[in-house]
Simulated assay, not measured.
Amino acid sequence: MKKTIILSLLLLFFLTPSSILAREQVSSQTVRGRIIDIVQGPTAEEKEQSYVADIQQIKVEITQGEFRGEKITTNHTLSGNPARDFYFNEGDRVLLWLESQNGVITRSLVREVVRDHYLGYMALFFIFSLILVGGLQGLKTVLTLSITGFLVLRVLLPLILEGYPPILTTIIITSIIVSISLIVTSGFTRKTLAAIIGTMGGVAVAGILAWWMSNATRLTGLSGEESQMLMYIPQGTNFDFRGLLFAGMIIGAMGAVLDIGMSISSTIDEVKRANPSISTKDLIKSGLNVGRDIMGTMSNTLILAYTGASMSLLLVIIANEIPLSRITNMDSMATEIVRVLAGSIGLIYAIPITAIVAGLLYNQVDFSKTNRTDQTNDL
């Protein structure tokens, strides 16, 4: 009898279709959808029993993926915390998370309202404005922005994520970005070379100072929530968080220093063309005078930009009347202070570096015997 039962079970196992024995396929995906109705939610008694502030029962039409055209109803739970809750409206385009099993939706969740189409419209208007006002230079600016975005998103960040040293990687990539941006915009000229040298010199000063201050003040690089989240990413990369902090300071200072380097170099180029007989000393002096005027506004720009980014933190500090001594010694605040001061100091030193380099380079060209064309300034 036992042998018969065992033989029957074995026959059943081998003759049963694999699709029955195999584990059912479960998959998840994020797709787009459109809210077609907000269904009446639960009663106040039901909400009280479920310990939630509110529940939106949302009917959504899926507009993307294999379930396109299907209509589903899902619950959107609200906790009463305005920082986390978002009330959806009929007609909203949303991102919908779906879990399906053997081609049938088993679970769904509305994640976010779709915003990228509005962001795309604004980006297109930005590009249109650049070309409308700048003409050919605006088109070159669009090209350099595209190259910068590619190098940052497709080269710099993936390399750091793979474990490459963030400081060295950032220095190399930002140097490439600066060189390409200036060469594409202004050509390979003495003006461009002076701007590149001045920019890299200013950023080097900012970087050295930021590195020294980060070590002296023992900054951890983990003051922000995003930095802390990097410890739990699936790639398991062992990051140098202080190096990441330093790399971020370099990138943050790069934009302002690049701007001032090109401004001074262009000014010296115009002065030399207007007065070909001007001496090197007076040419450098002209660049320094212009740099001093730019310095005040640009330093304010940096400080205001970082202040705006830390507005919520500053309001919390003021509202709780935290003493100044404690504020300046907080890791998060010390990080921002070092970031602002290092970038501003790098900007300051970029002025004389660019002025001196441009003055020396332009002294090698006799502008009195050349016409005002770009070719007279080519290296």
Results as ranks from 00 to 15, higher is better:
residue 2 K to I: 13
residue 3 K to I: 12
residue 4 T to R: 14
residue 9 L to T: 08
residue 12 L to S: 12
residue 14 F to T: 13
residue 16 T to M: 14
residue 17 P to T: 03
residue 17 P to C: 04
residue 22 A to R: 10
residue 23 R to M: 12
residue 24 E to I: 10
residue 29 Q to W: 00
residue 30 T to A: 11
residue 31 V to H: 03
residue 34 R to T: 15
residue 39 V to R: 13
residue 40 Q to I: 11
residue 43 T to N: 10
residue 45 E to L: 12
residue 47 K to D: 05
residue 48 E to I: 03
residue 49 Q to Y: 09
residue 54 D to L: 08
residue 60 V to I: 12
residue 72 I to V: 09
residue 73 T to D: 08
residue 73 T to Y: 07
residue 77 T to F: 15
residue 84 R to C: 02
residue 88 F to H: 02
residue 98 L to F: 05
residue 108 S to V: 05
residue 111 R to D: 11
residue 122 M to N: 10
residue 125 F to G: 13
residue 126 F to N: 08
residue 130 L to F: 09
residue 134 G to F: 07
residue 137 Q to N: 14
residue 137 Q to R: 15
residue 142 V to I: 12
residue 150 F to S: 03
residue 157 L to Q: 11
residue 164 Y to Q: 12
residue 166 P to A: 06
residue 178 V to G: 09
residue 187 G to R: 07
residue 190 R to S: 07
residue 191 K to M: 09
residue 200 M to K: 08
residue 200 M to L: 15
residue 203 V to P: 00
residue 203 V to E: 05
residue 217 T to Q: 13
residue 220 T to F: 06
residue 223 S to H: 05
residue 225 E to C: 01
residue 227 S to Y: 01
residue 227 S to H: 05
residue 230 L to K: 08
residue 233 I to H: 00
residue 237 T to L: 04
residue 240 D to Q: 07
residue 245 L to Q: 08
residue 247 A to Y: 02
residue 250 I to H: 03
residue 251 I to A: 11
residue 254 M to C: 06
residue 254 M to H: 05
residue 254 M to Q: 10
residue 255 G to T: 06
residue 257 V to G: 04
residue 259 D to E: 11
residue 259 D to R: 05
residue 262 M to Y: 01
residue 263 S to V: 03
residue 264 I to Q: 03
residue 269 D to L: 14
residue 271 V to P: 01
residue 272 K to W: 01
residue 272 K to G: 09
residue 272 K to Q: 09
residue 274 A to I: 03
residue 275 N to M: 09
residue 276 P to S: 04
residue 277 S to N: 12
residue 285 K to L: 14
residue 286 S to C: 04
residue 287 G to H: 01
residue 291 G to W: 00
residue 293 D to E: 09
residue 294 I to Q: 12
residue 294 I to C: 12
residue 297 T to Y: 04
residue 305 A to R: 02
residue 307 T to V: 10
residue 307 T to H: 02
residue 311 M to Y: 12
residue 314 L to P: 00
residue 317 I to S: 02
residue 317 I to T: 06
residue 329 N to M: 10
residue 331 D to W: 01
residue 337 I to E: 02
residue 340 V to M: 13
residue 348 I to W: 07
residue 352 P to F: 06
residue 353 I to E: 04
residue 360 L to I: 12
residue 362 Y to H: 13
residue 363 N to G: 15
residue 368 S to A: 13
residue 374 D to C: 00
residue 375 Q to E: 15
residue 377 N to L: 10
